[in-house]
Design a protein around this nucleic acid. Structure first.
Length: 415
RNA sequence: GCGAAUGUAGCUCAACUGGUUAGAGCACCGGCUUGUGGUGCCGGGGGUUGUGGGUUCGAGUCCCAUCAUUCGCCCCA
């Protein structure tokens, strides 16, 4: 039976919410632009392999959270669960390897089949950034700096903390994975069921388990940072030194690991200081390999993605509403004339609001409710005189101005 | 996917241990004021109490199922 509710995990975004979302997205866009990141828009759906290959066949997102279907042509299609895979695919499709380094900003809806919670939707929006072709710590620093500036501009610099860790390079990860599995296996029975499962699928994830018993075991586990080989260690030290030189506060989180297989070296996450349930507001890190199918070296990259809905829960105000000028005709003749006036003023760039029913008092009330800066009143008297009454809605002062020269006195009420 | 709590008007909430026509504030609409808003006074519309079953003389209240939301796990933005 069709329900009047939207599909679970989706939501209608009414104008007030849209102003908040837009503020988040536009701020991200403008900050990214200042850093030289151009906006890229990739399709909302891709071939399923685009995601399973980039995100890793064993990642939770790929194994249980994707909206996948077969289209009428028999192709396996997936609604994108995140943005990096599509950007990486576009990079190859468009032969952009010659233009490195590349700096992209993206925004748009993502889809994940999860159990909805506050700030967690099945259709949600992300803004994100990718820096491709830079394998030096300066890239990581730039991208974190971008993230920090974006947050600061939203007024969230103090509301959010940056946690950072290094996963090391492939060699380090492999070696550490082995020592970690050895250690954890020796406590095999004491581990939670979830963690025992993770042990062979993605053992690093055991590190951020929230199970009390797991945490005890993890507390004494070998630390990833101690296992970094020389290259990984100096890479991470350089990143940290860079962040410090920019006065960006951070805390080291040795158990921070990311769920997606493609991460290596720097992993970071911004979490709200106060918001209990609301997990990370933005996560990111470095990935080693966007590889052209025909071979050649993998292209390194760093990036992050932020949840628009989550961020806007922390943001106080959305984009300000613009205050319109209300046009209030009295009588049929005035109404017809007002429509023409509205047309002309809108073309001249004024923000014009006009209701289509009710008497003068009602229309004034509506103008007030919409926050109008001024009202133009037009009735038979004014029509006869070729004038219009201009009322300042804040001061209540009224004056009669000639219809023929209506724009000049309105200039100060321009949006 | 697992565990728990909640669900009464557009919004925030009432309704004693089950007991007549489910109330209030805000919002909305109308009037006081047929050409003047924000304050005030008067009035009005709105609810199959999330949905479907069950128990009972009687259910908003108890039981079951279902859906939704929220919290924790999981996952992550």
């Amino acid at each position: 039976m069709p329900s009047l509710n939207p599909v679970r995990g989706t939501h209608d975004i009414l104008p007030d919410d849209n102003r908040r979302y837009r503020r988040v997205e536009e701020t991200a866009y403008h900050v990214a632009e200042r850093f030289g990141y151009g906006e890229i828009t990739t399709p909302v759906f891709e071939f399923t392999e685009v995601f399973s290959r980039t995100l890793g066949d064993t990642s939770d997102i790929v194994t249980k959270e994707m909206y996948t279907f077969e289209d009428k042509g028999g192709d396996k299609i997936t609604l994108r669960p995140e943005g990096t895979a599509g950007v990486a695919r576009a990079y190859i499709s468009n032969g952009l390897q010659q233009n490195l380094p590349l700096k992209f900003f993206y925004r748009g809806p993502m889809f994940r089949y999860e159990r909805p919670q506050k700030g967690r939707w099945r259709e949600f929006r992300q803004v994100g950034v990718e820096l491709m072709g830079v394998d030096k710590p300066t890239g990581d620093i730039e991208v974190i700096s971008l993230a920090y500036n974006f947050l600061r501009e939203l007024g969230l610099a103090d509301a959010v903390t940056l946690e950072i860790n290094s996963l090391g390079d492939a060699e380090t990860r492999l070696a550490y994975r082995e020592t970690l599995v050895d250690y954890l296996s020796s406590h095999g029975d004491a581990l939670s069921e979830d963690s025992r499962e993770r042990l062979d699928r993605n053992p690093l994830r055991v590190l951020d388990s929230k199970d009390a018993r797991d945490r005890e075991i993890v507390a004494n586990a070998p630390i990833l940072r101690d296992s970094l080989n020389g290259h990984s260690r100096s890479f991470f030290d350089e990143v940290l030194a860079g962040i410090e030189s920019l006065d960006i506060p951070y805390t080291l989180n040795p158990t921070l690991v990311r769920g997606l297989d493609y991460y290596c070296h720097t992993a970071f996450v911004f979490t709200p200081r106060a918001r209990g349930a609301l997990g990370a507001v933005r996560g990111g890190g470095r990935y080693a390999g966007t590889r052209v199918p025909t071979g050649g070296p993998a292209t390194p990259g760093v990036g992050w993605a932020a949840g628009v809905e989550r961020l806007s829960l922390l943001v106080e105000d959305g984009e300000p509403k613009c205050r319109p000028i209300a046009l209030i005709p009295v009588g049929d003749a005035a109404n017809a004339e007002m429509i023409k006036i509205a047309h002309g003023l809108r073309a001249a760039g004024f923000v014009i609001e006009m209701g289509y029913s009710g008497n003068l008092a009602r229309r004034m009330k509506r103008a007030d409710r919409l926050g109008a800066v001024a009202a133009l009143l037009l009735g038979d008297d004014e029509l006869a005189r070729g004038t219009v009454t201009l009322r300042d809605m804040d001061s209540g002062e009224q004056s009669e101005v000639p219809l023929a020269d209506i724009r000049a006195p309105l200039e100060k009420y321009r949006g």
